[in-house]
Amino acid sequence: MLKIKRGTFLHVESELYAYHDTLREIVRIKNDLLQGKTSEDENVGGGKSNLPGDPTGRTAILLVSHKRLEQMMNVVDAIESVVSGLPDDRQKLIQLRYWTRPQTLTWDGIAAEIPAHRATVFRWRDGIITAIAARAGWR
Rank of each mutant, 00 (worst) to 15 (best):
D32N: 14
L33P: 04
L33F: 11
L34T: 01
L34H: 10
L34M: 13
G36E: 11
K37H: 14
K37S: 15
K37M: 11
K37C: 10
K37I: 14
T38G: 05
T38D: 05
T38C: 03
T38I: 13
S39M: 05
S39G: 15
S39C: 04
E40G: 01
D41I: 05
D41H: 03
E42Q: 04
E42Y: 00
N43I: 10
N43D: 09
V44G: 00
G45Q: 01
G46M: 01
G46S: 06
G47W: 05
G47F: 04
S49P: 05
S49F: 00
N50D: 08
L51N: 04
L51P: 05
L51S: 07
P52M: 02
P52N: 09
P52T: 09
G53S: 08
G53F: 03
G53M: 01
D54W: 11
D54S: 11
P55T: 13
P55S: 15
P55L: 13
T56A: 15
T56V: 15
T56H: 14
G57Q: 01
R58L: 03
R58Q: 12
T59C: 03
T59Q: 15
A60M: 11
A60V: 06
I61T: 00
I61P: 03
L62F: 13
L62C: 02
L62M: 12
L63I: 03
L63Y: 08
L63T: 06
V64N: 06
S65M: 02
S65W: 00
S65A: 11
S65D: 00
H66F: 00
H66A: 05
H66T: 01
R68K: 12
R68W: 14
R68F: 14
L69P: 01
L69N: 08
E70V: 00
Q71A: 13
Q71G: 04
M72N: 01
M72A: 07
M72P: 02
M72S: 02
M73E: 15
M73S: 04
M73F: 04
N74E: 14
V75L: 00
V76S: 12
V76D: 11
V76Q: 12
V76F: 15
D77H: 14
D77Y: 14
D77Q: 13
A78F: 08
I79L: 07
I79P: 11
I79S: 05
I79A: 08
I79F: 04
E80M: 09
E80V: 08
E80T: 09
E80A: 00
S81K: 11
V82C: 07
V83G: 05
S84D: 12
S84P: 10
G85A: 09
G85Y: 09
G85L: 08
L86A: 10
P87L: 06
P87A: 13
P87Q: 12
P87R: 13
D89S: 14
D89L: 10
D89M: 11
